[in-house]
């Protein structure tokens, strides 16, 4: 099978467990793309995540970047489509019936039950990026400052990105 086709199947499968969006899938995408298939190395994976952060648009676009680096334009299209299409079709079919099962006990239980798992996935994604990036002590300090500043202030995330880029350029982190 072509590389783009393989990518499509792998990511389409993942889209069914993407609770918390594409961000929650970072650890699993890393496993598929870096560890299992060796399509990309650790550094490139981290860089792609950094680029996605610095670009506008939905979080899902990190998948587009991964697809591009693995298999060019076809890969970018395949990866993006794989992440969006299955649930889009499902939601198209389900939305008219949503009112009839929203608020049911099982529906509330799934929503309540999935939330803590999504938190764990996003946290795992953060530790994965930290590990792949091989952060030094100064970079960890920057991570800590970013967390606190992001939680405490309403500064636009782009400011953080810009500061990170400058500190990187200066060779501080």
């Amino acid at each position: 099978m072509s590389l783009a086709g393989e990518l499509f199947l792998e990511f389409a499968l993942l889209s069914f467990v993407a609770f918390g969006g594409a961000t929650a899938l970072l650890p699993e995408m890393h496993r598929v793309v870096v560890e299992n298939h060796h399509w990309l190395d650790d550094t490139t994976f981290t860089h792609l995540y950094a680029i996605a952060q610095a670009a506008p648009g939905p979080n899902v676009l990190v998948v587009t970047l991964i697809g591009w680096e693995v298999a060019g334009l076809l890969g970018a299209l395949a990866a993006t489509l794989a992440m969006c299409l299955p649930m889009s079709v499902l939601i198209y079919l389900l939305i008219d019936r949503w009112e009839s099962f929203s608020g049911k006990r099982w529906q509330k239980a799934v929503s309540l039950g999935v939330a803590p798992l999504a938190v764990g996935l996003v946290f795992s994604g953060a530790t994965l990026i930290a590990k792949s990036a091989g952060l030094g002590w100064a970079a960890w300090l920057l991570v800590a400052v970013t967390v606190v500043a992001n939680l405490r202030t309403k500064l636009h995330p782009l400011w953080f990105i810009a500061v990170g880029a400058v500190l990187g350029l200066l060779g501080i982190v």
Binding site: A126, T146, F160
Partner: peptide, 10 residues
């Protein structure tokens, strides 16, 4: 640098 910030944002 951006990756470190991105990690913090996560």
């Amino acid at each position: 640098g951006i990756a470190a910030v991105g990690c913090g944002l996560l």
